[in-house]
Design a protein around this nucleic acid. Structure first.
Length: 226
DNA sequence: TACCAGGAGAAAA
DNA sequence: TTTTCTCATGGT
């Protein structure tokens, strides 16, 4: 993928959807909690769970750890996978406090911080990069299922490419640009939720021109099952 | 009713 | 090493 291709997609998405103002969290810690809770879950459900934590007055690492796992799971219920996410959120909070909190972590270089996030049970590459980009404002491109789907359909990324290779492809094409990565990922998600779904509504797709030139077989969803 | 959603870890092959 | 299964609520 060339810089020109990456920028062309960005411009088309931005023109179609406008600025997305991500991430919708009031504090870096809330962004990190949201990144864990949104795993394989729609954001509207995550908002309910975060609302529960706020109502309990526990949207803080120490307060979350002070809750029993059952109480925490109950608060997280609307976000789905609540037992799994309660354990993951507690693991993250323990790590967060052990590390010294946001003020200490923000002084680490990005590769070190990324490696340390990977050491937390329940934080994989996408969640780590969400946290790096939206909470720590590091120039890390977040790759998700929408990114794979969209750029696969555009013919700009081969199928089966691993996470790190896709991330590197974007970062190499665009250069380190936190603001751009922030907006780009948000636009891909917005586009994915609205148009570029497993059963795409390509007639409504602002990228149809790019799709047609890149990969005519997949553009109109002709190879997708009806 | 079935599909899908801002994944990750464990188990099985 | 790679693939498959499990976790679960809520909207369309």
């Amino acid at each position: 993928m060339t810089r020109q291709q990456a920028r062309a997609v960005f411009q088309a998405l931005y023109h179609c959807w406008g600025p997305q103002h991500w991430w919708p969290g009031e504090t870096p810690f809330e962004v990190m909690v949201g990144a864990i809770l949104t795993q394989n879950t729609s954001w509207t459900n995550v908002e309910r769970a975060i609302g529960n934590l706020k109502a309990l007055g526990v949207l803080e690492a120490g307060a979350i750890l002070a809750l029993s796992e059952a109480s925490l799971a109950e608060a997280l219920r609307p976000s789905g996978y609540f037992n799994v996410k309660a354990a993951r959120l507690r693991a993250f909070c323990r790590w967060y406090l052990e590390q010294g909190g946001f003020g200490v972590l923000r002084r680490l270089d990005t590769p070190t911080l990324r490696e340390r996030l990977f050491s937390v049970h329940g934080i994989g590459p996408e969640t780590a990069d969400d946290i790096l980009l939206y909470a720590f404002e590091r120039p890390v491109f977040v790759v998700d299922a929408y990114t794979r789907r969209l750029f696969g359909r555009l013919g700009l990324l081969p199928e089966g490419l691993d996470y790190e290779s896709i991330r590197a492809a974007f970062e190499q094409a665009l250069g380190p640009d936190t603001a751009c990565f922030n907006e780009y990922h948000a636009l891909i998600v917005q586009h994915g939720k609205s148009v570029c779904r497993p059963r795409p509504r390509c007639a409504e797709c602002c990228l149809s021109r790019l799709c047609n030139s890149a990969n005519p077989d997949t553009v109109q969803g002709s190879k997708q099952k009806a």
